[in-house]
């Protein structure tokens, strides 16, 4: 693991009308780390992801990728710096084949691969996520987990500096979950940096180097999975006072 600072979030805040959805969040991610973003529903995790990827503009604070300020840039410019993401509700492109879906990541990603070369990239990434031989199917003909694989492959095809996964493991059955965890572990092994919003505790324990826990928009705790999951504040946020 090359230990250098990749992504830095400082005092990030988002206000919708009177509601503070994300409140003064700060943390750093080192290159090669897999960081889990945890918290009860409605604690602002997805909003934070949207602030990083540029879907939303922050009210205050900054996001910096290797010293370059991303705050306020439109999503396509942020994608061009090497931030790729998946969506909480899977978003594949229905009129494009699996191969074309994945090509999109390479063609418009930071490397701006030519369509011809992107085909080869897409093929190898599809192979990698376990969709080899099914390049020409359309998303409608595929199962939910395969659609999620396409989405992950699309993000990977961009060869991103950092990968944002928004509940990528949610909704999978136990067998699929094991496959999914293995897949993310293999990304970790090749040195990818990942920020993942996740509820599946097994996945968090076995994958994350570090976790950030949010509650009601604020940062509640930060540390290794074992540390944060034993933290009384975190238990209280999830389960209420009686269990703390």
């Amino acid at each position: 693991m090359s230990n250098h600072l990749l992504l830095s979030i400082a005092g990030l805040t988002k206000v919708f009308g009177g509601l503070v959805a994300v409140n003064q969040i700060s943390f750093d991610i080192q290159a090669g780390e897999v960081v889990g973003l945890l918290g009860p529903n409605g604690s602002g995790k997805t909003t934070l992801m949207n602030l990083i990827s540029g879907a939303l503009r922050p009210t205050q604070g900054s996001v910096t990728l290797e010293g370059r300020r991303l705050t306020g840039l439109p999503p396509h410019r942020i994608a061009a710096t090497g931030v790729a993401r998946t969506f909480q509700l899977v978003r594949v492109l229905p009129s494009l084949s699996a191969l074309e879906n994945v090509m999109v990541g390479a063609v418009f990603g930071p490397d701006q691969v030519s369509p011809g070369a992107a085909r080869a990239v897409a093929r190898s990434v599809l192979e990698r996520v376990g969709l080899g031989g099914r390049e020409h199917l359309h998303p409608a003909e595929m199962t939910y987990i395969d659609q999620k694989r396409i989405e992950l492959a699309r993000a990977l095809a961009a060869d991103p500096r950092i990968l944002l996964l928004d509940e990528w493991l949610a909704g999978l059955n136990p067998t699929e979950l094991q496959t999914g965890i293995e897949l993310i572990r293999s990304l970790q092994a090749e040195g990818r940096t990942v920020l993942m919003v996740e509820h599946v505790m097994d996945a968090i324990r076995s994958l994350c180097d570090r976790c950030v826990v949010m509650s009601a928009g604020s940062k509640l705790a930060e540390g290794t999975p074992a540390e944060v999951l034993a933290n009384p504040d975190v238990i209280r946020a999830y389960l209420g006072d009686d269990h703390a």
């Binding site: 999503p75 969506f87 009129s95 090509m103 999109v104 990603g109």
Partner: peptide
């Protein structure tokens, strides 16, 4: 249709959010 532009258009037609997050200046 054969160029990057054509692919970008098809992505925009399917899902503008995905297009923008994939790096397309929609």
């Amino acid at each position: 249709n054969r160029s990057r532009l054509g692919l970008a258009l098809r992505v925009i037609g399917d899902d503008e959010t995905v297009a923008a997050h994939s790096g397309i200046n929609t």
